[in-house]
Amino acid sequence: MANTTKQALEQSLKKLMQVKALDKITIRDITTDCGISRMAFYYHFKDIYDLIEWVCIEDAGRALQGKKTYDTWQEGLLQIFEAVLENKVFVLNAYRCISRDQMERFLHKLTYDLIRGVVEEKSQGVKISLEDKSFIADFYKYNFVGIMLDWIRQGMTADPKVIVEKMSTTLQGAVAHSIQNFAEKK
């Protein structure tokens, strides 16, 4: 039931953002549209921005679905780009109305899990600390998020396949090399 309520709120928010700027949408607008009480909204979310964060994470989570290995991370990243593009009006509206810090937080949560999965896989059998693994994942997470934010800021006109291909070319062997460098440093 809780997930059904959240999904109804998500659909109403996305529907309203097609015709209204985020800063003009109220909780009453959302709850009226989907027929859910304000109390139910506040049971699940503290405010509209909390709902937006949940929507972004849910959409990306659905897009990633198991694409967190070295062999599949490019596909997972492409699916994140495609999910963002599929929700272009929603994302651009949110991008214009929320702080860059909030948008970065959303994207950091999405990309960290993807990259951390790759780091874990590539570090199997290598003596490297959890702290160093986290640092490597953070390092690449910031690169991914920076590129995605630039793409969003520029109106999402560049082809996501080309972006992911360039990222893949740039990163070819880089994660494994980073892990090896940390292991040799010890």
Rank of each mutant, 00 (worst) to 15 (best):
K67V: 01
D71S: 15
F90G: 04
V55I: 15
G76K: 01
E121R: 00
G146S: 06
K6S: 06
V175R: 03
L107S: 12
H177Y: 08
R105T: 11
M39P: 09
L64D: 01
R105N: 09
L114Y: 02
G66D: 12
Q102F: 09
A83K: 07
Q154A: 11
M156T: 02
R62Q: 08
Y112L: 12
I80N: 00
N3P: 00
G155A: 03
T170A: 14
E104K: 14
E75V: 08
N181L: 15
R96C: 09
Q7W: 13
R105C: 06
S37I: 04
V89G: 03
Y140P: 01
V89T: 15
Q79K: 07
I57C: 02
T157L: 12
V119M: 03
D29C: 07
R38D: 14
V19M: 14
M156H: 02
K185I: 08
V145E: 00
Q154I: 04
E82M: 10
G146N: 06
G35L: 11
L149G: 00
I147A: 13
I25E: 01
Q65E: 09
P160W: 00
T157A: 07
Q11Y: 09
G76R: 00
K14S: 07
K67L: 10
M1I: 08
K161C: 07
A183P: 02
F135D: 11
D59P: 01
A176Q: 13
H108P: 01
K109W: 02
I80F: 01
D47H: 06
T111R: 00
G35C: 09
Q102A: 12
E86P: 02
Y140T: 03
I48D: 03
F90A: 04
F182T: 05
I147F: 11
D101Y: 08
Y140K: 04
V19C: 10
K67Q: 11
V89D: 14
A60Q: 01
E120N: 14
R38V: 08
I147M: 11
L107A: 10
I128S: 12
N181T: 14
D159F: 01
L130W: 11
L51W: 14
R105S: 11
T169H: 13
Y42I: 08
Q11M: 10
L22P: 01
A83S: 15
D132A: 10
T4N: 08
I147L: 15
T111I: 05
Q18R: 13
S99G: 15
A60T: 00
R62M: 07
H44I: 03
E10D: 07
T72P: 03
Q74M: 10
Q154F: 11
I128T: 10
L171S: 09
K14N: 08
L13T: 03
D150I: 02
K88H: 09
D71M: 09
V89C: 05
K133L: 06
Q180V: 04
H177T: 14
R62T: 04
A94I: 15
G76P: 00
